[in-house]
Design a protein around this nucleic acid. Sequence first.
DNA 1: ATGGCAATGTTTCATTGA
Length: 272
Amino acid sequence: MQIATWNVNSLKVRLPHVVDWLRENPVDVLCLQETKLRDEQFPHSQLAELGYECAFAGQPTYNGVAILARRDTVGDPSSVVVGNPLFPDEQKRLISADLSGVRVVCAYFPNGQAVGSDKYDYKLRWIDALADWLARPAALPVVLLGDFNIAPEDRDVHDPKAWEGQVLCSAAERERFARLVALGFVDAFRLFDQPPKTYSWWDYRQMAFRRNAGLRIDHILVPQGLADRVRGCRIDREPRKREQPSDHAPVVADIDVDDGQSAITPPRRRPA
DNA sequence: ATGGCAATGTTTCATTGA
């Protein structure tokens, strides 16, 4: 199963990029964040033409998440859940669905704006609630992927000195990231040797992409029990080079999943 | 120290993102 995540920063503007990317990279599952569309505006017919069935949850202007599933390989998303049952939230940042024996949790973590701000507090509470939810036993192994808005380590930051203690890099955020991983996941990207200075987001300003002044804040967390079935994980910079790009690049993982009936063990859970 | 770029909404600018 090839599974990918991409913060598209408006699916309305980026639909041509998504369509082109899927033609080149016909992944089984593509999770999108920041669709910024009302549900009635979601381009499900265009994506269905491409062979993808979609589960989505949107709102005007901000947020919005979607799971695109290739009809001929993984079929329709089932058991779709919008939001975190433990954290009532107007903001559409979370959607999960079951596909091919895997529970896919697509997440758009809050940005946090600035350390110490109300939005930062919301970010930490949102993550804590996500961890509480994921700590519950699940019927299927969970893959948690999306825009985490956290650079887990200094090597995920182009200029660690400048970013030290700033939002996306603060100790409390990194601790939350580690806590999520400790629920029984591995960071798929770090299972492999990767080119140094590989990032998934670059600011639109100051030619940040050309300078590779980026951060790695988009992640795919795979259950420990599936770690040795992950065949690869990469960040695709190509779409970021196009005209009118998203500021994020897609992250893709290749997981060797048996078709539903394997003896895959769910991730080990933290004691209650 | 500040803002720089992009998207959205209803706009002639404010808000948010990261």
